[in-house]
Amino acid sequence: MTNKISDKKLSQEQSEELLNILKVRFEKHMNRHENLDWAMVKANLDRSPEKLWSLNEMERTGGEPDVIGYDKKKDEYMFCDCSAESPKGRRSVCYDREALESRKKHKPENSAMDLAASMGIELLTEEQYRQLQKLEPFDKKTSSWVQTPPDIRELGGALFCDYRFGNVFVYHNGADSYYAARGFRGSLMV
């Protein structure tokens, strides 16, 4: 079946182009990953070529993925959307499939959770979002859905975050709501 993430591959030319974009971004923004080495990141990418497709989807939808962390125990690097604002190609989405199906009128085209799954990435948690904001300010004009605890989701709500007045704010909305300035940021471990 060709719908599985593992079946989605980039051509050699696409892979080389993406790797070049990622390397340039990595070297330009060393503040996001001090003491990390591109050669080591590239070695992990070489061992997991299927992850390049997901990174390409992040790039294609405006996420500008970059390395923001390293898990020493698992020997994995965390890529995250580092676009200044919520990725443009992932806005105007409600939170999840249940919320999408519950709308009777004016349904958005997709949900954040479904779109993330189709890309092979995960929405950031609130904690990950706050860690990202320690690197530099993001979402100063937009907002991003974040993973929502089950107890909130069961009551029909979902959480989103943004950065205003020098602080990260966490808010709630009905999970079925969607706005032109709200999307989501994703992460991928490689």
Score class of each variant (00 low, 15 high):
residue 110 N to G: 02
residue 111 S to W: 04
residue 111 S to Y: 04
residue 112 A to W: 10
residue 112 A to E: 02
residue 112 A to M: 07
residue 112 A to V: 09
residue 113 M to L: 13
residue 114 D to G: 13
residue 115 L to T: 07
residue 115 L to I: 14
residue 116 A to C: 11
residue 116 A to F: 02
residue 118 S to G: 14
residue 118 S to K: 12
residue 119 M to V: 10
residue 119 M to P: 10
residue 120 G to H: 03
residue 121 I to N: 10
residue 122 E to H: 15
residue 122 E to I: 13
residue 122 E to Q: 15
residue 122 E to M: 15
residue 123 L to D: 08
residue 124 L to E: 14
residue 125 T to D: 04
residue 125 T to R: 14
residue 126 E to M: 05
residue 126 E to T: 04
residue 127 E to T: 15
residue 127 E to H: 09
residue 128 Q to S: 10
residue 129 Y to N: 14
residue 129 Y to W: 15
residue 130 R to E: 14
residue 130 R to G: 05
residue 130 R to S: 06
residue 131 Q to W: 10
residue 131 Q to P: 10
residue 131 Q to H: 08
residue 132 L to S: 07
residue 132 L to N: 08
residue 133 Q to K: 09
residue 133 Q to L: 07
residue 133 Q to P: 08
residue 134 K to T: 11
residue 135 L to N: 04
residue 135 L to E: 07
residue 136 E to K: 06
residue 138 F to W: 09
residue 138 F to G: 11
residue 138 F to Y: 09
residue 139 D to Q: 06
residue 140 K to Y: 12
residue 141 K to R: 12
residue 142 T to M: 07
residue 142 T to I: 13
residue 142 T to E: 13
residue 142 T to R: 03
residue 143 S to H: 11
residue 143 S to N: 03
residue 144 S to W: 00
residue 144 S to P: 13
residue 145 W to L: 00
residue 145 W to G: 02
residue 145 W to Y: 07
residue 146 V to E: 03
residue 146 V to C: 03
residue 146 V to K: 03
residue 147 Q to S: 13
residue 147 Q to K: 11
residue 147 Q to L: 13
residue 147 Q to A: 09
residue 148 T to N: 04
residue 148 T to R: 00
residue 148 T to P: 05
residue 148 T to V: 05
residue 148 T to E: 03
residue 149 P to Y: 08
residue 149 P to F: 06
residue 149 P to V: 13
residue 149 P to A: 11
residue 149 P to K: 02
residue 150 P to F: 00
residue 150 P to M: 03
residue 151 D to F: 01
residue 151 D to H: 01
residue 152 I to F: 04
residue 152 I to V: 12
residue 152 I to K: 01
residue 153 R to W: 00
residue 154 E to N: 06
residue 154 E to V: 00
residue 154 E to L: 07
residue 155 L to T: 01
residue 156 G to C: 07
residue 156 G to A: 04
residue 156 G to F: 04
residue 156 G to H: 03
residue 157 G to T: 05
residue 157 G to L: 06
residue 159 L to E: 00
residue 159 L to W: 00
residue 159 L to F: 00
residue 159 L to S: 01
residue 160 F to D: 06
residue 161 C to F: 08
residue 161 C to Y: 03
residue 162 D to Y: 14
residue 163 Y to H: 13
residue 163 Y to Q: 13
residue 164 R to I: 15
residue 164 R to G: 13
residue 164 R to F: 12
residue 166 G to W: 01
